[in-house]
Design a binder for these strands. Structure first.
Length: 873
RNA sequence: GCCGGAAUGGUGGAACUGGUAGACGCGCCGGACUCAAAAUCCGGUGCCAGAAAUGGCGUGAGGGUUCGAGUCCCUCUUCCGGCACCA
């Protein structure tokens, strides 16, 4: 126990009286000053040491930190500090996801430019992050709204554009007809514009897309090898990418004497003989053609244009259709097939048209019943050869073809092969792989984002801005007014010369989706200050991120876009050999709080912040009443929900830090639930965390006081307990189950207090040194201070992480659990090394046997070594 | 609607790879200290019955597998996340 020697020496060198009361404010100020002065968190590339790049998702600078941020960064900080003490060269950076819609909304509300609002928020939130004591390397800070960052968005975009990985086509947006502006999905509430209340329409406009589908196969295949990601996230991404194998083919038709094909994709080509109609999207060219002399159809298409663009909205709307009056030819039978327009057919998926096989597809079945279309059963399914209503899932099962002419008797796989071959022979189609994943539309008709670096020239077309003219700088003095993009109203921005021919041209005024910014910031953190390249060789050292931490709500979009961008950058030669940005992913749960409301006699509901509510409990601790502290008004408890403005149940981290200090906030957040689960806020729980840190402080204050002599048995038992708890805590750390690590710290303090001994007892000295180190990633300030006060050393972070000592864990005897007849009946103390027959003998001689086995025949005895004896009677 | 999760005492959660359900906290009850309060400390606390010993029940609901199920399988309910322009 060399630590005790050093401990005693240091202690004598720096003796001074310890502050009696736990004062988090002064402790935290001093510890943060120490780290700043020592440059403790500056990360330097060092090829001789194993690196650990720990990254929490950077925040949107919305104004002030919310509890979700505190949780996210505390989790990251625990990992960072743990791995430092395990000897890794750790990088933990921080930056700002600084472009986005809220800045424009705030600008409209306050008439302040988004730039000023954003920079002010960044300054405030940075102070808050610092007060929480996170081990961040602030020299790598970045903000995506700075030209030195978004320049590289533009630079990469021009590369992708020249490669064809960025291209232009039309896309569908929400259109507010009153404000004459494009709305984000969240700005559409019940189908109406949030500011105008006007019914929102779909509108097709030209936009730029990034060809993420070019990487679909790779993005899907690599998922299988990503062992550091949660299965549920990988599964969601797999389903999102949505690879399906099927047949794409055309139904021939003639229009104005011209022979054309109506293309569809199906995974059930075996049902082709059951096709009784085709359905096309309302935006499909065939629908638009037919609507020209069909007012009813035109009205239906107009009706489909109303409403939002989200998949959820489209999925829940009533499935409706109208016949176009047009027919196409069945590619095998040659029969006439009517073409309908269906509001459930998506133009963005496949060819915007589907074949209708009512007998074997639930949606087609409902559609056919509704509009009286024929239903022809062509598959023998588990429930028979017929498909009487109501719909049963068996109808969609794969089976043998019937009523299908030459295909009769073929089963699914064979039928698909033969039919695909026949279609191919006729030049109408072939087998094809289809993806659910769509290309990424990055154009936004908004001001506060990265300008898309394209110039529209009447002579040369769309010309990418040359490197020497980058960045295209976003003016920071504009204030949007809700009626479209202010950039489009500022000639000094959009008027320019064509980079190609020099003639007058117009600059693109759309900006990029903010997901572009967040798709590569992790690589930029590796290369701060480089104004000549997007990333440099320093990224080779740090990338990929070893541990990424963020909300589960990003499971698909942000993470998939980042995986795509990393590959695009790899193929651009920027990140050689790096395909996956994040080796390990931890998805944290939401932060919840209690909700209370008060309903006025007029029926208005007012949400009351939990901080203002006082509850009354019954003898068992159940909440029986709640009232508002201010006016004593009765309020109703409405369960827990995610912290939100609308339910007024947010808890301000700043108030918490001011009252209890950062360590208490960090401890509670870690202790209250495991990182991946939702966390329920509790003021009492925070009090409990504060109480624990005070207890720890008091124990250390009294550490020098002489205590009673410790009995050898208690000494051994305490040491066993502390090392057992440590072993479990180290295991839990690897699982990222930090709440039980906090519990472990509590258990160790409990054991030390039971020991009633201080400095004179080696087990107490050893136990305390383990406790402070185990706790230091969670509550770094108080552990830093106590480590120094007690003379363990000058910097706890420089000390190695504790591991249990095998000798301390040795036991000669253990308590076996005894089950008799399926019930747990007690314990049997037995030598650890006892074998089955020895245990049986011991058991039969025990009191338990006397009590529970008298007169019973033993059928079998099952022994789980080191754990349990189960007697089957 | 589709995809992915979750559900354990009054409460947050714990329980190894199928092996004593409720660790560690919070709350509540009782006690110590105090003129009193706060703070702190000590003890108790799954539910039901019982004076107790003890017995029965118990991990969202219902079935199943197993010597043994919170854990594995099937069906269902409720809640949460995502659904491509919130970030």
């Amino acid at each position: 126990m060399s630590i005790i020697h050093r401990f005693c020496q240091l202690r004598h060198a720096g003796e001074r009286a310890m502050q009696v009361h736990y004062d988090p404010q002064s402790i935290e100020r001093e510890a943060q000053g120490f780290w700043d002065g020592a440059g403790s968190f500056r990360a330097l590339e060092d090829a001789s040491r194993p690196k650990y790049y720990c990254l929490s998702m950077f925040p949107y600078p919305s104004g002030k930190l919310h509890m979700g941020h505190v949780r996210n960064y505390t989790i990251g900080d625990v990992l960072t500090r743990y791995h430092r003490m395990r000897g890794k060269n750790v990088l933990q950076p921080m930056g700002w996801d600084a472009f986005g819609l809220p800045a424009e909304n705030a600008a409209m509300a306050n008439k302040v430019p988004p730039a000023k609002w954003t920079y002010d928020n960044i300054a405030y939130m940075k102070r808050q992050l610092k007060s929480l004591g996170f081990a961040l390397d602030w020299e790598r800070e970045l903000a995506t709204c700075r030209p030195d960052y978004y320049k590289w968005n533009q630079w990469l975009f021009t590369r992708l554009f020249r490669k064809g990985l960025a291209y232009k086509k039309t896309g569908v947006v929400n259109w507010d007809p009153i404000d004459q502006t494009v709305l984000a999905n969240e700005q559409v509430i019940d189908g109406r514009g949030w500011r105008t209340g006007a019914l929102v329409e779909k509108r097709e406009i030209p936009m730029y897309f990034l060809r993420i589908t070019a990487y679909a196969e790779e993005l899907l295949a690599e998922l299988e090898r990503m062992s550091g990601w949660p299965e549920q996230v990988k599964l969601m991404q797999k389903n999102w990418i949505g690879r399906s194998e099927g047949v794409r083919f055309g139904f021939p038709y003639e229009i104005a004497g011209e022979r054309k094909l109506l293309h569809v994709f199906t995974t059930r080509a075996d049902t082709i003989m059951g096709v009784t109609f085709c359905a096309v999207a309302p935006e499909h060219p065939l629908a638009l053609h037919a609507a020209r002399d069909n007012p009813a159809l035109a009205a239906f298409i107009a009706e489909c244009r109303a409403g939002g663009v989200t998949e959820a909205e489209i999925a829940v709307q009533e499935k409706k259709g109208v016949a176009t009056g047009l027919h196409v030819t069945h590619p095998i039978s040659g029969g006439r097939v009517p073409v309908w327009v269906g509001n459930y057919v998506l133009m963005g998926y496949g060819d915007g048209a589907v074949m209708g096989v009512p007998a074997h597809d639930e949606r087609d079945y409902a559609f056919a019943l509704k509009y009286g279309l024929p239903i022809n059963c062509v598959i023998r399914h588990p429930a028979g050869d017929d498909v009487p209503p109501p719909w049963r899932p068996e109808y969609a099962a794969c089976g043998t073809c019937i009523n299908s002419g030459k295909y009769d008797g073929l089963e699914y796989a064979r039928a698909t092969e033969v039919i695909a071959a026949d279609l191919k022979a006729r030049g109408l189609g072939d087998k094809q792989v289809q993806w659910r994943l769509r290309d990424w539309g990055v154009s936004r008709q908004r001001y506060w984002g990265t300008p898309i670096p394209i110039v529209h020239c009447p002579a040369c077309g769309d010309v990418p801005v040359p490197d020497e003219q980058l960045p295209v700088v976003l003016p920071e003095d504009l204030v949007p007014d809700g009626s479209g993009n202010p950039l489009a109203k500022r000639p000094s921005f959009y008027q320019c010369a064509c980079p190609s021919c020099g003639k007058p041209a117009q600059r693109e005024t759309d900006t990029m989706d903010t997901f572009v910014d967040s798709s590569w910031y992790f690589a930029r953190f590796c290369c701060p200050g480089n104004d000549r390249a997007m990333v440099d060789q320093r990224a080779q050292y740090w990338m990929p991120v070893d541990q990424y931490i963020g909300g589960i709500e990003h499971a698909i979009l942000h993470l998939l876009y980042s995986r795509f961008f990393t590959r695009a950058m790899r193929d651009e030669g920027l990140l050689p050999g790096v395909s996956e940005p994040f080796s390990n992913l931890l998805t944290q749960g939401m932060v919840l709080a209690e909700t209370y409301h008060r309903d006025s006699p007029e029926g208005r509901r007012e949400w009351v912040n939990p901080a203002e509510v006082e509850v009354t409990r019954d003898a068992k601790g159940r909440i029986v009443a709640a009232r508002r502290r201010g006016d004593g008004a009765d309020v109703a408890y409405a369960g827990v929900g995610t912290m939100s403005k609308s339910r007024n149940n947010g808890v301000d981290p700043q108030a918490l830090i001011d009252k209890y200090g950062a360590d208490t906030a960090r401890f509670f957040i870690i202790f209250a639930s495991p990182p991946t689960q939702s966390l329920e806020w509790s003021d009492e729980g925070v009090e409990g965390s504060y109480r624990y840190l005070k207890r720890l402080w008091n124990y250390c204050v009294n550490f020098d006081r002489p205590g009673p002599a410790v009995a050898p048995g208690l000494r051994k038992a305490t040491r066993f307990e502390i090392h057992s708890v440590l072993r479990q805590a180290n295991y839990d750390l690897l699982k990222h189950q930090f709440n039980t690590v906090a519990s472990a710290a509590m258990k160790i303090l409990n054991a030390l207090e039971r020991l009633s001994a201080g400095r004179s007892e080696p087990v107490a000295v050893e136990g305390l040194s383990i406790l402070l180190r185990l706790l230091s990633p969670i509550t770094p300030h108080v552990c830093h201070r106590l480590w120094r006060e007690l003379g363990f050393g000058s910097d706890i972070m420089q000390k190695e992480w504790p591991d249990p000592e095998p000798a301390a864990l040795e036991q000669e005897e253990i308590d076996y659990v005894v089950q008799i007849g399926g019930k747990t009946r007690g314990n049997l103390r037995a030598p650890k090394a006892a074998d089955q027959s020895a245990l049986e003998t011991l058991l039969k001689a025990s009191e338990l046997a006397q009590k529970y086995l008298m007169g019973k025949a033993i059928k079998r005895i099952i022994v789980v070594p080191g754990r349990l004896i189960n007697v089957v009677v």
